[in-house]
Design a protein around this nucleic acid. Structure first.
Length: 658
RNA sequence: GCCGGCGUAGCUCAGUGGUAGAGCAUCUGAUUUGUAAUCAGAGGGUCGGGGGUUCAAGUCCCUUCGCCGGCUCCA
């Protein structure tokens, strides 16, 4: 028996008798660590604890680094192994089930893992508790996760015998000559899997199955649809409980619930899916959002335009929308032998305005802004509250400029969007630079060097502001690269808001020109940009962001005037009138209710300020002010309050009180 | 569009084949109130729509529409 030199992390190397497994080596080096370890890295390679250490050929020490709980990597292993446990339970309860894939999910806060299955009969939510129970039973019996390396042919034979066609397909597509499979001993489960896994099922304690959903095999809607079982797992029950609690709190912020409770908007079946009705409260907020934007647009030297909602079909053929985007457009409608289509985007209309006269380099850039309402034929299953709708308004703008000007324009757009997010108090915006992919199946327009130049301009505008962004290959539009701004909703879904896009396509298609210094025609560069993206979606995100408690400048009702008795009504009316005269939005509660009931009502409506008025206030000609989150903040004169409120509104302050 | 689930009063929900209910909200009356729910009464429903089984359907079956969670899609 020879020795093997083993080094634990950065500690000194030790000689251990070979052969020896990682688990045994760890036990000899550090018992506490050995107990905790889930898997390990051996010279940087992920392995199970049962992995047998081999001496290095050059005699160097083998470096072991255990993968421990409470690390992201450890969590990934835990969830991956839990997914296997799930599959084992399904096979046990529903023999004959076909298995798909079952990965851990670390990026998506909604879930921890899933496994795709086709059971002999469709599973329903009611089956989840039984499956979870079986997982616990298996878990308690401390079965081992056992890895085996076998030939590809052997693996195919095993999975064919078990009638697992999907697994066979995976092996054929992904497997090398030797593949690894994992068993959970004591169960009928075997998986084609690269690992690594926890040593035994006893490690898995805090897990929960969450939901059941449909999912296409290999994400292809032409292929069979499977059932995806979602679950999550943590190292301790406390972590799991905290996660569940947080999820419940998040659900309380759901904009669909708050939209109803605060009477902000509705969607009405009898009028059509995905069409938004802005009620007075929501419309008031929207007006504040738009007013803010208009103010900024003027400061940034944009021009305003208004354009139609519908245009000749031919226009959409010239623009290429019909060819590239036709599935998302409402079908044509005919009038006197001419076909028309509702607009899914505003760009062709703004181009129409650009083309209405000859342009010179001297009067570029032209910046056309419009709150343009567009209609898209989204599939019914994709609709979601305000976030995904069929009719929405884009705070759109198109910038027409010379090639020399475009970098500056893009940079200004990024500055603008940054300011907007700052104003609304968003701090968790994700920036993505979407560029051309290497995938040749997607047709991209424009020359290689144009793409490189455009990408550099976009990247620079982010870099010069120190904005973190992800570069995403293959996500660019076919007509050019873009920057997207995304944000998470209350339940962890990511939604795209605004975008800045460089367009190689439309200036060509519409043969746009400007006359240059050389007195010759040149092609302008076109940039699309939206900050909110869709006003509906941005509003949805805003509702959840503030949990319905809007800052003063946005709140539909800013101040509730609450007289304590009927005697005070007249004084209350006078106070309300004075504040209204200053442009503040006031509601007065003259109901025959106790003051605590009126306060409760205003609190539930999340009104920022309440003015409690009784005999004392009237006699002293003052008001008692209550702030939504602070409660009673004392009395003051109407003028003092008015000054404070006006200041908060003017500054678009995010909090009502410093 | 596809898979699974769910549709009962404005909202949240109860109602396992035998006379459609509760709380909140709304309206009316009484009460005149000091910082998160005063009391009493009233109105409100073709139980999502259509069809079927049955002596009898909110309840069972079929179908259709919508909603929810995913998948696909998402300029």
């Amino acid at each position: 028996m020879s020795d093997i030199s083993v080094q634990l992390k950065n500690e000194a190397a030790a000689k251990l008798p070979a052969p020896i497994t990682v688990a045994d080596a760890l036990r000899q080096l550090d018992r506490a660590l050995a107990k905790q370890a889930l898997t390990a890295k051996v010279d940087g390679r992920d392995v199970d604890l049962t992995f047998e250490l081999q001496p290095q050929e050059n005699g160097d020490a083998v470096r072991i680094e255990p993968v421990l709980p409470e690390t992201l990597e450890g969590l990934g292993v835990l969830r991956h192994s839990t997914a296997h446990l799930l599959a084992a339970a399904v096979l046990d309860l529903f023999p004959g089930s076909k298995l798909g894939i079952g990965p851990p999910l670390l990026d998506d806060p909604r879930y921890g893992f899933f496994y795709d299955v086709i059971a002999p009969r469709p599973l329903t939510d009611a089956d989840l508790p039984a499956i979870e129970k079986r997982m616990r039973e298996i878990g308690k019996r401390n079965f081992a996760y056992r890895r085996e390396e076998i030939s590809r042919e052997e693996a195919l034979r095993i999975f064919r015998e078990r009638d697992e066609p999907l697994k066979c397909e995976l092996i054929e597509n992904k497997g090398g000559p030797v593949v690894s499979v994992y068993y959970i001993d004591g169960t009928p489960f075997i998986d084609f899997c690269i690992g690594p896994h926890v040593p035994n099922t006893n490690k898995l304690r805090a897990f929960k199955l969450l939901s059941l959903a449909g999912a296409y095999w290999m994400g292809d809607s032409e292929r069979p649809q499977m059932q995806r079982i979602y679950g999550t797992a943590f190292f301790t029950q406390e972590e799991l409980d905290a996660w569940i609690k947080q999820r419940e709190e998040a659900e309380r912020r759901d904009h669909r619930r708050l939209g109803r409770e605060l009477d902000l908007f509705s969607i009405q079946e009898e009028y059509g899916q995905g069409l938004i009705f802005w009620h007075p409260n929501g419309a008031m907020i929207r007006k504040q959002m738009e007013d803010y934007l208009y103010e900024e647009l003027v400061k940034r030297n944009y021009s305003f335009v208004y354009t139609p909602h519908i245009a000749k079909r031919e226009l959409w053929q010239i623009s290429g929308h019909e060819q590239n985007y036709g599935d998302s457009m409402f079908a044509p409608t005919k009038l006197e032998d001419t076909e028309f289509r509702l607009k899914p985007m505003n760009c062709p209309f703004h181009i129409g305005i650009y083309k209405s006269q000859q342009r010179s380099y001297r009067n570029l850039p032209q910046r056309y802004a419009e709150m343009g309402t567009v209609y898209r034929a989204e599939l019914s299953g994709t609709l979601h509250g305000l976030m995904r709708v069929r009719g929405f308004t884009v705070d759109d703008a198109h910038l027409f400029c010379t090639p020399d000007q475009v970098r500056r324009e893009i940079s200004d757009c990024v500055d603008f969007v940054n300011q907007v997010f700052h104003t609304f108090g968003f701090d968790k915006v994700k920036f993505e630079l979407s560029v051309k992919g290497s995938d040749t199946s997607k047709q991209y327009l424009g020359a290689e060097e144009d793409w490189a130049q455009a990408e550099a301009a976009l990247a620079d505008s982010l870099n010069e502001r120190g904005i973190d962004y992800a570069r995403v290959e293959g996500e660019a539009a076919f007509y050019g690269p873009k920057i997207d701004f995304k944000i998470e909703d209350a339940i962890g879904r990511l939604w795209q808001l605004g975008t800045v896009q460089w367009d190689f396509n439309l200036p060509e298609r519409f043969e746009l020109e400007y006359i240059g210094e050389d007195n010759k025609p040149h092609r302008p560069v076109m940039v699309h940009r939206a900050l909110f993206g869709s006003i509906e979606r941005f509003f949805g995100v805003l509702i959840e962001h503030y949990a319905g408690a809007f800052p003063l400048w946005l709140a539909p009702v800013q101040i509730a005037v609450l007289p304590i008795t009927d005697r005070i009504n007249e004084y209350a009316e006078a106070v309300a009138k004075q504040l209204r005269g200053d442009g503040l939005r006031i509601e007065i509660d003259l109901r025959s209710e106790k003051i605590s009931a009126k306060i409760r009502h205003a609190q539930l409506q999340k009104v920022p300020f309440m003015l409690v008025l009784g005999d004392r206030e009237r006699d002293e000609n003052r008001i008692a002010v209550r702030e939504r989150t602070r409660g009673d903040i004392g009395t003051m004169t109407v003028e003092e309050f008015q000054r404070m409120a006006r200041d908060l509104v003017t500054r678009r302050a995010l909090v009502n009180i410093e």
